[in-house]
């Protein structure tokens, strides 16, 4: 099932399918946020944003607006 990364629940993971590259920082790609890589939502901050992710082995936090630019296939 294809969903936006922003809609993931805690503990869910998926494979990145597409990334709207114009609207996200290059740094995120450099940290491994690329199509084909696995992503897991580890935790959400209080009030549900930002999101704490494990993308391709990198642990990082991004905000909801950026996560909305990333589409994943749920695992």
């Amino acid at each position: 099932m294809k969903v936006s990364l922003a809609s993931l629940k805690k503990g869910q993971s998926g494979i990145i399918i597409s990334v709207v590259t114009d609207n996200i920082p290059l740094k995120l790609l450099e940290m491994g946020c690329l199509p084909g890589n696995e992503v897991e939502l580890l935790q959400r901050a209080p009030f549900s944003c930002p999101m704490y992710l494990n993308i391709n082995g990198s642990h990082l936090a991004i905000r909801k607006e950026v996560a909305e630019q990333i589409e994943v296939e749920l695992m």
Binding site: I24, K27, L28, P50, Y52, H59, L60, R63, E65, V66
Partner: peptide
């Protein structure tokens, strides 16, 4: 705003 923070071990 592009907010990306690494969460180191």
């Amino acid at each position: 705003s592009f907010f990306v923070v690494e969460m180191p071990n």
